[in-house]
Write a protein that binds this DNA or RNA. Structure first.
Lengths: 129, 129
DNA sequence: TATCGTACAGACAGATCGTCTGTCTCACAA
DNA sequence: TTGTGAGACAGACGATCTGTCTGTACGATA
């Protein structure tokens, strides 16, 4: 049976992280940021990762500039949401609520966290009224 | 670079799902549930998956019975929590809060959902008082 | 026009993962 | 006790994924 490939690979994610930080970057900048050096082969590697990310509509490339300028299309929050939906599909028949419950029950939620969460909920109540 | 293998594989997860439903099962029962038939090779496949799950401490095997009875050690909620932590590590520097925010902001959270979530929060307030 | 960095295509190797084959062992019936 | 069928276990294979590299074409700058 065909294994389901991960939509965003580890190496691809590293590239995305830099783009999220910088906003926009060239291959050279990305390579140096990621590998702390910039050889020919490393550049090609990053180039390939960008190519794949472009194919996945996660990154866009400005071909009018030289060298090309790359920037992220996919926002960090969108990726988070996508990942959450994926785990929900795998483990909760697509329902997001069980994830919420799990998160809230997990330790590491301070009183302030709870308070700000209540704020968010109130906000939602207002919006849908 | 070594790719990071996924802790629980798709096929392994399918086995776990059945165990979560049934509570306990033999290889034969699992195979029939998963593949709707029970050939020699399919049985071996399930056997191998169980072996790997056992190695990962997700499943335990009762060797006193014949055939062996298998049951899940890892609970569904625990796996959910683990998955959430994994995405948090990849995308939020380990912080769970951003996930919460994402989830709450996502559509598909009804008024009742919000209300029950408030209940959960109140519960937590009580506990930590 | 020579040179250097970038773009692009293609390929490769290591690893993962689902699957299968083969052998041994156990329980049960004849 | 022995034969039989199902399960346990070990090992291996092959498709696929994924990070990386090589090779070639292209574009800009001196």
């Amino acid at each position: 049976m065909a294994r389901t490939p991960q939509d965003i690979t580890d190496a691809e994610l590293n590239v995305l992280q830099v783009l999220w930080d910088q906003g926009t970057a060239t291959v050279r900048e990305l390579t140096e940021k990621l590998y702390r050096e910039c050889t020919l082969s490393l550049t090609a590697t990053v180039q390939k990762l960008l190519e794949r990310l472009e194919g996945k509509k996660c990154v866009k490339r400005d071909r009018k500039t030289w060298p090309h300028q790359f920037s992220a299309i996919l926002k960090r929050e969108e990726l988070i949401a996508r990942q959450l939906q994926t785990t929900a599909n795998k483990l909760c028949e697509g329902e997001l609520n069980p994830l919420l419950t799990c998160l809230v029950k997990a330790k590491g939620l301070s009183a302030e966290d709870r308070q700000s969460l209540r704020g968010l909920l109130d906000q939602l109540d207002m919006d849908t009224k």
